[in-house]
Design a protein around this nucleic acid. Structure first.
Lengths: 177, 177
DNA sequence: ATTGTAATGGTCTAGGAAGGTCAAAAAAGT
DNA sequence: ACTTTTTTGACCTTCCTAGACCATTACAAT
């Protein structure tokens, strides 16, 4: 439970209600909110900043920034994060405002991937995306080629590696916007 | 930290964000952009210049130019660089536009795959296909995602499996058109 | 012709400046 | 108590920069 002072009065609110509003119980949340505010202020929802600087501003180790990005700014959350190392290094964070239906379909496919599925089922999922015009025929073929590389039977379970690979390929599509 | 006033609201923007918009983060990038601009302005996409002069313009050691050429203007990136030493020495940089013989290019890429290449080289090859408009940006990203699945370092050799996978993906493109 | 020399460009390596990863410790939920 | 989330820090990879030293070329002096 958290107590919030608002316009002079005292309002008592439950945690669950407050989540995501503006109370930040911890660093990670604070950083998340900060980044989101900057994104909101940016005309094209894109941010360019340095991990080191951000860490300094919040007086934490740089890897904390990675934690925040990894837990709150993933493709699944609708964000795209790119980076570059070395001198002049940076983080580029972009909020993707995507077509809802496409995203939902992709996410549902991604969701299906969480359980064990066979190669055949995976290929079926990919075809579904092609049917829905979410991927082109070529993209469809490319993904299938990648997925079936070195495979004999198609009625076996999809290996972890291959599943992960499919997920990553689909995430590319999510990022595409 | 910089405060920017925008359409009535106060938006807080970080240094780095400002920098990233207008200025290149580092020397190498600046030089790259400069060369590419010159190339774009040149009638036949060919440039003749002196390493020393260029280095002077950017106030850096001459070998910095070599670094830029070696990392951004390789054959893999679709550029041709020749040079001559001694008095009257020069650098000749040419951008190759190979859009014509797509199939040949694909075949040459496939050929490159016969020998051992690193992950980085493989990614470069794929990028080159995108540059030449043989694959779309999305296809490019999909293939890269598939290729780098489960990989940490990029300077290691491409595994046999992954190489085979790339070949199969490229063969999809060959069949296509 | 031969040789010397200055003017170029090339290579290689060390060092520094980012950002990334991983796992253990600490804190917060349940 | 147990589980999940957060926080830290040690160590790693990538990228960039500078500089020492090497190779080639044109031109002048012999």
């Amino acid at each position: 439970m958290v107590v919030v002072f608002l316009s002079g009065g005292i309002i008592i609110v439950k945690d669950s209600q407050i989540k995501g509003v503006s109370v930040m119980g911890n660093l990670a949340n604070a950083i998340e909110v900060y980044i989101k505010r900057l994104l909101a202020a940016s005309p094209n929802a894109t941010l360019l900043l340095q991990r080191k600087e951000l860490a300094e501003r919040f007086q934490c180790v740089p890897s904390q920034i990675n934690y925040v990005l990894a837990t709150r700014f993933t493709a699944g959350h609708g964000y795209l994060v790119e980076s570059r190392r070395g001198e002049g290094g940076y983080l580029r964070i972009k909020r993707l405002d995507l077509n809802k239906e496409r995203v939902n379909q992709l996410l549902s496919v991604l969701n299906d991937l969480k359980r064990k599925i066979t190669v055949n089922e995976a290929l079926g999922l990919i075809d579904r995306l092609a049917d829905a015009r979410i991927v082109t025929r070529r993209e469809n073929e490319i993904m299938k080629a990648a997925l079936t590389q070195g495979l004999r039977a198609q009625n076996q379970l999809l290996s972890n590696n291959k599943r992960e690979m499919l997920v990553e390929m689909l995430e590319v599509l999510l990022k595409d916007s």
